[in-house]
């Protein structure tokens, strides 16, 4: 399989190889970006799940400070430790018990992990392709340099 790849790469002229390399590099960048994005999002889901954990451990009526902005807080108190409102997207919010919400965030987190694994595999494939192309290009340059002085 890998052997076949190398042969077909050798059939391409250097310009085509360069083009291919450029395209692959672009692809790799895109995939790496989405991977980063997925990582950040799954971090947010994880943090939300942990926040619910913290909430269940606190008592009803317990005082807390609510952030209105990053630097402005008002005091409040915990109204309920087992009911939360979850943003499920496109402007819809659902009242859930803390177990339901934990389950929701866990599912989202797992789904993202799964997707990240998929993207990672594609990324690895592209990276090894890129390596092969780079090698083919270097070989080509070398053989050209070797031919140059002889005639």
């Amino acid at each position: 399989m890998a052997q076949e790849k190398v042969v077909s790469l050798n059939a391409l002229d250097p310009q085509q190889l360069l083009q291919l390399q450029e395209r692959l590099q672009g692809d790799i960048e895109k995939f790496a970006q989405s991977l980063q994005f997925f990582g950040r999002s799954s971090g947010l889901y994880h943090a939300a799940g942990k926040a619910i954990n913290g909430l269940t451990e606190s008592k009803e009526g317990q005082p807390l400070l609510l952030p209105l902005t990053q630097s402005l807080y008002v005091s409040g108190s915990v109204a309920s430790t087992d009911q939360v409102l979850v943003d499920i997207g496109t402007g819809y919010y659902v009242e859930m018990s803390s177990e339901q919400a934990q389950d929701y965030y866990k599912r989202k987190f797992d789904k993202l992990q799964e997707m990240m694994q998929g993207v990672n595999e594609v990324l690895k494939g592209k990276q090894s392709q890129l390596l092969q192309i780079k090698k083919a290009l270097a070989d080509r340059v070398q053989s050209m340099a070797a031919q140059q002085p002889s005639p």
């Binding site: 499920i88 997207g89 496109t90 402007g91 819809y92 919010y93 659902v94 009242e95 859930m96």
Partner: peptide, 21 residues
């Protein structure tokens, strides 16, 4: 996004409280 929302809505009990922003 809408697909994941409908998926969540379909998992809910009939008496769940749903709000729209």
């Amino acid at each position: 996004e809408n697909e994941s929302v409908i998926e969540e809505l379909n998992r809910l009990d009939d008496d769940a409280n749903v709000f729209k922003l």
